[in-house]
Design a protein around this nucleic acid. Sequence first.
DNA 1: TCTGGGGTCCTAGGACCC
DNA 2: TCTGGGGTCCTAGGACCC
Length: 425
Amino acid sequence: MSKVILQIDGNNFYASCEQMIDPSIKGKGLVVLSNNDGCIIARSSEARKMGIPMGQPYFKLKNKLTQLNINVRSSNYELYGDISNRLMQLLRKNCEELEIYSIDEAFGTIKRPKGKCLYKWGKDLRALVYQNIGIPISIGIAETKVLSKISNHLAKKIQTNSGIFDIGIIQNKDHYLNQIKVDKVWGIGKRMSIWLKNKGITNARELRDMSSEQIRKKYGVVGLRIQNELKGNLCIPIKETSSDQKEISVSRSFSYPIDSLEDLNQAIIKYVLIASAKLRRYNQLSSAITIFTNTNTHSKDYYRSEATGKISVPTSNSKIMIEKSLSLTKEIFKPYKNFIKAGVILHKLQSNKYNQTLIFDSQNIKEELYRQRLDKTIDNINLKNGLDTINWGSSMMKKEWLPRREKLSRIKTTNIENIPTIYAN
DNA sequence: TCTGGGGTCCTAGGACCC
DNA sequence: TCTGGGGTCCTAGGACCC
């Protein structure tokens, strides 16, 4: 028995989620838009076949989508999050270890009985997931993470594999690795693939076989790890328990440009409230905040500004964070600029279990406890009734610049009971 | 007119200490 | 007159991921 790595993901995840809760669009062309209805970030396989590209701005393709009778949805992260949780729970039951890598993707491990292909095992899991969750998945099986990604890619690409591929059972993988373009290898991005192509390296097999010394010189341990994983040596381990988050960021584009400090302040307050609620949900504290804003990246006089401030006592308190943020906002604001986006990043996160705060005098302790209770009460009410039920007065004044979500599916998704369950037979 | 959002890891270089 | 060198911690920024 040897351990193998599995890479499992939901096919066209956002599109599949939308189709699952609304059977009327099943089997039809469908695209899902990013926040602010900006770009196309997911396509059903039907839309893909009709030639709709990924990542394109919505406004450029609006007419074409109408002509082709393709359905359009704004992204609905509450829904995708709910479905993702159910998917991951089911996968956890069926793997030995599981690392949740993103909303639609996980790495897992199981034992391989000596010399046995795991295609049948994958097929059963795939059927189980479809019956219980209603989402089609793909499964790639291999010795390492990088190879399991490639295996998953082949599972999707080659029709006869029907969503499952076990490259780990294949001794000589050259035939398959030759088919994988170098920029499709996990960890090889734009920059590295340009450098590799200039060196005549175009596919995964060539990357595996090239001089390690050259890679190490240019890309250090990061590059070497990728190459080693291609050779079948596990270098990137499975992280089962997601260690505490290192930072939390909340940013949004506005539906139209803003140019007043007042508007910017309101946006920032809004984002700080979301971020600090997240922080409390993770039982973490932060001791540094970055605020940033920028004008249109596509315009000639693009302007971006950011400022970071420390908080002397690590906190998760909304009020303290808002005060800090507003003083930072004043620093980064410039008049006569049309800002189209702003955001907040909390860093230096730590668990609130080990909160070694400064010694408070009794009055401060009282205030701190009061603040914590207040935050908690607000969080609980908002969790039950939606994010905006109770909010800080200052973030309520104007909302016209909030992001667009015009094509949101109407189904109420914050309630898990509304998600249909599909039973076998 | 309209081009997303939220993360991680690594490295180089500065500040500081002994 | 000659003015070291290694370690650690922090930060900003690059590159990549979904």
